[in-house]
Design a protein around this nucleic acid. Sequence first.
DNA 1: CTGGACCTTCCAGTGCAGGGCAAGGTCAAG
DNA 2: CTTGACCTTGCCCTGCACTGGAAGGTCCAG
Lengths: 129, 129
Amino acid sequence: MRIGELAAAAGTSTKTLRFYEEQGLLLAPDRTPAGYRNYDSTALDRLDFIRRGQAAGLTLAQIQQVLEIRDGGQAPCGHVRDLLDQRLADIEDQLRSLTALCDTLTSLRDEATTLHPDTCGPDQVCRYV
Amino acid sequence: MRIGELAAAAGTSTKTLRFYEEQGLLLAPDRTPAGYRNYDSTALDRLDFIRRGQAAGLTLAQIQQVLEIRDGGQAPCGHVRDLLDQRLADIEDQLRSLTALCDTLTSLRDEATTLHPDTCGPDQVCRYV
DNA sequence: CTGGACCTTCCAGTGCAGGGCAAGGTCAAG
DNA sequence: CTTGACCTTGCCCTGCACTGGAAGGTCCAG
């Protein structure tokens, strides 16, 4: 399987695949005599795992760590649990601050709708913000 | 008021102030004979506005647009309303996808807690993700 | 044998919001 | 007179996940 086929199968670009290899996410595949990368089907599984990890909000560096543990022959379960816990805590923080921001913006918006524009004093930049 | 004083008063750094000036967010202040920036108190108001805009999730480029309209002598109200609307829509999207992600992660975590690590097959990278 | 699709490597840039450091000028206190 | 705190400009660096382009090699159909 050449790089273009794998990219198409995984729904990504050849650029991205070479980048992943450089970052240690994809193992360097065999090469044809001409130097072309020659992937086997496990590469696609690996890409699917990377995609699921990204969908879970992990960074490429974190995904790389998990793959490295697995490549070393160990089950990365404990590490993955820690990563998921950390992500959950981060996301709950983000949710809290986004919710607060949403409330603030909503009330700013409501003021902006009910107040007349000409009540803006020249002394302030904008009474809405 | 020199740049260090203004930075301290605004709770930011001199680097940031010079950066804002370069980006058109702060007007270029007068200079002392030695070439030092000499701010008046309106600069602090402007920085407060920038900080409020950032707190509302606007980018510096968007804040700069609002300030530019205001500097041009017009009230930026309509534009600000549009920006706030856009931000609100974006945030609601973010909230939706974060909530979904949170649910997904929570169930992944629960599986990771209840399943034994040794049920991980060697054929998959990690059954948790 | 030629054209076009594909592959290779390397270098550089994107967006956001600054941070770090160098080399030099200025000012007030001791 | 010197020390130290502050100021000036200029240039590159950060993190994240890619993306673009140049210059050249390979493979297959017509």
